[in-house]
Nucleic acid binder design. Structure first.
Lengths: 99, 99
DNA sequence: TACACCTGTCAGGTATTACTGACAGGTGTA
DNA sequence: TACACCTGTCAGTAATACCTGACAGGTGTA
């Protein structure tokens, strides 16, 4: 999983936040969940969770699908992507070296 | 290298900055360097570099020693620590789970 | 003494992120 | 119609992070 400095910073910025770590934690345990339900469980306002999920999705750390429930409601389900990122002096040097 | 959520966030916050990635990059290539010299090479003001080095040292990503040069000047040398941090849904879940 | 280096710190300003509350639009049931 | 859910967006504000310029103190050489 080689990344450029820009990609690396996108991921680091996405993970540098306690809410977003908890979101990954929750989704990893649950498998998947939709926005409003997750907001209730994490005790976050829906607009705020929406914003955090957006950042995580931009960094490709989570993925989403819009689905219709049995009773016709549109639910946006999120799940964690299967990412693996090794941070060390060598991997950072490699990413920065690509400028 | 297991870390709590707090430690993990300290490291992520330290790495989430282009200057600080370049500092690690430079120190990893050079081995070690002192503050004023590094500031010239990276084209950063010394107070700014000082601040970034502080963050990196707090996160234990770099280490420093104050030394006296042959002509008596006090030089603060920095070098990168040998850190290895794997980021994945599982490792994040583990760190957050420790609350 | 004056200058050239080295170190550290800090007030003040700018830029970036994080967050809330309100709005708009959708589908379903009573 | 009214209500209970779901979705998304956005203006305005609060909280952080970043950065500069100036100051203070140290050792050496001319």
């Amino acid at each position: 999983m080689d990344r450029s400095e820009e990609q690396l910073l996108t991921v680091l910025a996405a993970l540098d936040n306690p809410h977003r770590l908890r979101i990954i934690h929750a989704l990893h345990r649950q498998g998947r969940n939709y926005v409003s339900q997750l907001a209730r469980e994490l005790n976050l306002s829906r607009p705020l969770l929406h914003l955090h999920l957006q950042k995580l999705e931009e960094a490709q750390l989570v993925t989403s699908q819009l689905e219709l429930s049995a009773d016709g409601k549109a639910l946006k389900y999120f799940e964690v992507a299967d990412f693996h990122l090794l941070l060390s002096p060598a991997t950072i040097t490699e990413a920065v070296g690509k400028q």
